Amino acid sequence: MSEYQYYEFLALDRPLDEDQVRQVRALSTRADITPTRFVNEYHWGDFRGDTTRLVEQFYDAHLYYANWGSRRLVLRLPDGSLPAKEATAYAMEDALGVWTQSGHTLLDFSVSSEDGGEWEFETSYTLSAFVGLRVELAAGDLRALYVAWLAGLTAWELAEDDEENYAREVEPPVPAGLASLTGPQRALAEFLGVDADLLAVAAEDSRPATTEVLDPTALAAFVAGLPAADKDALLVEAALTTASPGARLLARYRAATTIPGPRDVTGRRTAAELLDMAYRRRTDRRQREKVAQAAAEQARARAAAEAQEARLVKLAENTEQAWSEVDGLIAQKKAGAYDAAVELLGDLRALEARTGGTVDFDRRAGELRAAHRGKPSLMQRFDVMGIPSS
């Protein structure tokens, strides 16, 4: 198996300066590097740089995947946009890591090679599929974090880990709208290999996503009540980055005015409960699919039998004409014509079998075989059909 690795970095809040570009260029001479983007593909060898350090110091997003299954997405947000304490509630070993560096919160979404399986190159990714997650997270939409937590559960289930861990692990706060993920969130779920049945049962306790209509008067009253230090921090954030502090302000407003859901009040589900629910849903779904597949196969068989019956009724009106058609098809010396000839011969055999035997058919088909034994492609079709030699 040939090796393949993909590396991409994006600077979203501010571009790299000339010195930073030189530092990055020193790590790779073949990469496509601009002040806002780094991308390279490796078919041999490895990237010499420290990808984590590059995101901590220079970039706001990093994507990596390899054809042996490893996948990684790292996002960097100003701590004021997403406090690490809030994100840490969703941290899961081998699925989501959270840490802070120089006033930023870093989110490390990952799947190890042991968990991910060999990469399917029919589906490839670029960071453009995921950068929308930063805006969503800054606005208080934490569905991506919950999706990452589910990815950790998916890996646990595949690894058949200690069931006591499942019983102890309790789900983090369930965001609204899990049943209707956004495009970037769906891409993340696919990228991390989240089990679809697990996501479906987790969404059962998620409030529907709603189109928000803000009340300007209520929002103004909320802003007026904020501590002066918080307002100052929002203004400083607006001055120092291209990221909008409005998203974080709206997130705080929503958190202060949202009515708690049922699980916020009565308690959350354990990993064991979710995995059991997913197993039952998966089993039921597969049984329904099996029944539906069997019904579809029966319907196809009935349709084929009805079509053959119609052909045989028409064929019985003039079998000699059918034998002439077989001769004409064979004379074309084309694969498609040979297939049509064999199909017609099958109908002729089936028609004669209805009268109690196929003696005449075997004789005439054998004569055909002898007459055209110099046509290997036709002879192969005759062999498959079981036409005897004369």
Results as ranks from 00 to 15, higher is better:
Ala203Asn: 07
Leu235Ala: 15
Ser112Tyr: 09
Ala209Pro: 07
Glu163Cys: 10
Arg53Cys: 10
Asp347Asn: 08
His372Asp: 00
Pro83Lys: 11
Gln101Lys: 15
Asp264Asn: 04
Glu317Gly: 10
Lys375Glu: 12
Gly97Lys: 13
Ala84Ile: 03
Ala255His: 10
Asp50Gly: 01
Ser70Asn: 04
Thr182Tyr: 09
Gly116Asp: 06
Leu127Phe: 04
Tyr253Thr: 04
Val74His: 05
Val313Tyr: 11
Val39Met: 08
Ser2Lys: 10
His104Tyr: 14
Leu82His: 09
Glu306Trp: 02
Asp13Pro: 03
Ala255Ser: 14
Gln380Ile: 02
Thr182Cys: 07
Gly69Met: 05
Glu120Pro: 09
Ala203Asp: 00
Glu118Met: 11
Leu348Arg: 01
Leu153Ser: 11
Val98Cys: 08
Glu169Ala: 15
Leu82Trp: 09
Arg263Gly: 11
Lys333Pro: 00
Thr88Leu: 15
Asn67Cys: 01
Gln101Val: 14
Pro262Gln: 06
Ala138Asn: 02
Ala304Val: 04
Leu54Ala: 05
Lys231Arg: 13
Thr105Lys: 12
Gly246Thr: 05
Ser70Met: 11
Glu297Gly: 02
Gly357Trp: 05
Gly132Lys: 02
Arg369Ile: 02
Arg48Asn: 06
Asp327Gly: 05
Pro260Ser: 05
Thr182Arg: 11
Pro35Asn: 09
Ala350Asp: 04
Lys231Val: 13
Glu352Tyr: 00
Glu352Val: 02
Leu63Pro: 01
Thr51Val: 13
Thr257Gln: 06
Thr283Tyr: 08
Leu77Asp: 08
Asp197Val: 10
Phe9Glu: 05
Met1Glu: 12
Phe9Asn: 04
Ala95Glu: 09
Val55Asn: 05
Val384Asn: 04
Ala255Tyr: 02
Gly366His: 03
Arg281Ala: 12
Asp284Val: 06
Gly80Asn: 09
Pro376Cys: 00
Arg285Thr: 11
Gly386Phe: 00
Ala61Met: 04
Asn318Ala: 10
Leu368Trp: 01
Thr154Pro: 06
Pro15Thr: 10
Asp383Leu: 00
Leu378Ile: 06
Ala167Asn: 11
Pro216Leu: 06
Asp17Thr: 12
Arg76Ile: 07
Ser70Val: 09
Pro376Phe: 03
Gly336Val: 01
Gly356Phe: 02
Pro260Arg: 13
Leu75Asn: 06
Val111Pro: 07
Trp68Met: 08
Pro172Arg: 05
Arg48Cys: 08
His62Pro: 09
Leu250Ala: 09
Val74Asn: 00
Glu273Met: 11
Leu275Thr: 11
Arg311Pro: 03
Arg268Leu: 12
Arg37Asn: 07
Tyr253Phe: 15
Gln321Trp: 07
Asp383Phe: 02
Tyr166Trp: 15
Ala251Met: 06
Pro245Asp: 00
Thr123Ile: 14
Arg14Met: 10
Asp17Tyr: 14
Gly261Trp: 03
Pro262Phe: 13
Pro78Trp: 00
Leu199Met: 11
Glu352Thr: 00
Leu133Ser: 07
Arg30Lys: 14
Arg281Pro: 04
Gly183Val: 15
Ile259Cys: 10
Val147Ser: 00
Thr210Ile: 15
Ala148Ser: 10
Pro173Val: 12
Ala61Thr: 05
Glu169Gln: 14
Ala31His: 10
Gly97His: 11
Pro208Gly: 08
Leu150Gly: 03
Glu325Asn: 07
Glu317Gln: 05
Leu181Ser: 04
Ala239Thr: 04
Glu212Leu: 15
Thr126Asn: 02
Pro78Lys: 01
Phe58Leu: 13
Leu315Met: 03
Gly336Trp: 01
Tyr146Asn: 03
Ala256Phe: 05
